[in-house]
Simulated assay, not measured.
Amino acid sequence: MTISSSAVTDTLRARIRGCLLGGAIGDALGNPVESRSLAAIRAAHGPAGVTGPVPDGEAVTGRVTDDTQMTLFTAEGLIRAHARARSKGIGGAETAVVRHAYLRWLDTQNHPAPPPPSGPDDLVRSGSLRLQPWLYARRAPGNACLSGLGRKYVPDPYAAPTGRPGPVNSGSKGCGTVTRSAPFGLTGAPAEDAFRLAAQCAQITHGHPTGYYAAGAFAAIVRHLLDGDSLEGAVPRVLGLLARHPGHQETTAALRRALDLAADGAPGPEKLETLGGGRVAEEALAIAVYAALARPRSIEDALLLSVNHSGDSDSTGAVCGNLLGAQHGDSALPASWLALTEGRAVVAELADDLAYAFHGPAPAYDEPLFPYERYPHH
């Protein structure tokens, strides 16, 4: 079947929107039950656990966490790096620009609200995300993310000995590397390049090889889904990519367990919990992949499976939502759940900007159709 270029553009936009919005839905779905035991979840919500969005501890439904916050700053950083390369002809600075985006996120975590506007150029200086009050909410950010952003680092994604200082937090492989890395797979770069850049940027805060290789694997899976591959097809391809890199073993083993478990009879939370709690990178990725594969006919059921467990439910829900949205597009997401999700309009706008920047027409840099003023590159 031949698809017109305009249809391809619409499909890409839908998958990019789906990826970011799906992640936000899963994040908000898991947030109220994060780190609660499965027994406690069932006691509070019934034998099936949560069956849809529920209020959190402050009786608010649909609030996202640091997982969605950092994902948005990843996307913003990538667009800024793209704008910098177009305007100045200087490429290859993505890691540094993304790190600056994470520092802007860190700034939101240290202040209660956006600073008051100081003039008409405030938007250009600050970027659009730093003007969003809801992003200033501190929703249990990871310790490695907070500490790593205050230290210098040397990205070394292939763990080659250099005699130089290595990545910060060398023992950290927390799930924050994975939960923020979907945008690396949405730019259209080849899967190996998405893997490499996600691994490099994971090392900004986490230095354990499993932490950054799991992030790279996730980005590469998202890249294949963007091309229209199925999750069943994408994961084995990424396992082949992982095998090229020393230190891949924990991530590879976790993904293989997820594949085997999804093929092994009826799914359920008890079976999911054999993959771990999702607090470290390879477990979060494996749980998300398992849930998406085990419930292939229903996005709602897959998301619910990804959060009804005793571990880091918002993180596993976010990653599962990223995968499902990238595969099926935004129109397949549960509309009633999306309507309750915090910041959904900002997430959609950022997704559209990412789609246009990396997949749209290639106009001159001053083309007025693209809002580069929201992504200052200087």
Rank of each mutant, 00 (worst) to 15 (best):
Q249V: 15
P114A: 07
G233E: 10
Q109W: 11
A93M: 12
N308P: 08
P368F: 07
A48P: 00
A281F: 06
I41V: 13
N31C: 14
L261W: 07
S126Q: 14
S118H: 14
A48N: 09
G127W: 03
D107M: 11
P368I: 03
I287Y: 02
L333F: 09
V54I: 00
L129E: 04
G360Q: 04
C175Q: 04
V8Q: 15
E367M: 11
A302H: 02
G171D: 11
Y372H: 12
L305E: 08
R237N: 10
S35Y: 13
L255H: 02
W105T: 00
P368E: 06
V97F: 01
A215H: 02
A101T: 00
A43Q: 15
P296V: 12
V168F: 04
A263W: 04
G30I: 01
A254P: 01
L38W: 01
P361C: 12
M70P: 02
Q69W: 09
V238N: 03
A214S: 14
V289K: 00
Y375R: 05
T2V: 15
I25Y: 02
I16L: 05
R80G: 06
R63F: 04
P167T: 05
S170A: 15
A202G: 03
W134P: 00
H206D: 09
G52S: 04
H82C: 11
R138M: 08
G268S: 09
D10P: 05
G329N: 00
Q327V: 08
K271H: 06
T11M: 15
S172K: 02
G329E: 06
D67V: 06
E192Y: 09
A281Y: 03
D301P: 03
A160C: 13
T61P: 01
T251L: 08
Q249C: 12
G211H: 03
G216L: 03
S5L: 14
P267G: 04
G30V: 05
T68I: 02
I287R: 02
P334Y: 10
I3H: 14
D260Q: 12
G166A: 10
P165N: 14
G26P: 01
E300H: 12
L131E: 08
A85E: 12
A14R: 08
A339E: 11
P371Y: 11
R80K: 10
R244N: 14
T108N: 09
A43R: 13
Q69L: 12
S4C: 15
P157R: 07
Q132G: 08
Q203I: 06
T68A: 08
G211P: 00
A266W: 05
G325Y: 00
A326D: 07
A345H: 11
P236C: 08
N110E: 15
A75L: 05
W337C: 01
D67P: 02
N110F: 13
P296E: 10
G23T: 03
E283Y: 04
G233W: 06
L146S: 12
Q132L: 12
H208L: 09
A243D: 14
D66K: 06
G276R: 01
S170L: 14
V235E: 07
V307I: 13
S230Y: 04
L72F: 05
I204A: 05
R279N: 11
P246V: 10
L272F: 07
G23Y: 03
L293V: 13
G174R: 02
D107S: 15
T95A: 10
A160Q: 13
S87I: 13
A253K: 14
L369Y: 14
L350M: 02
P236T: 11
Y158I: 09
A302S: 07
P167G: 03
V222C: 07
T162S: 15
A189V: 05
L305H: 06
G207V: 07
L129R: 07
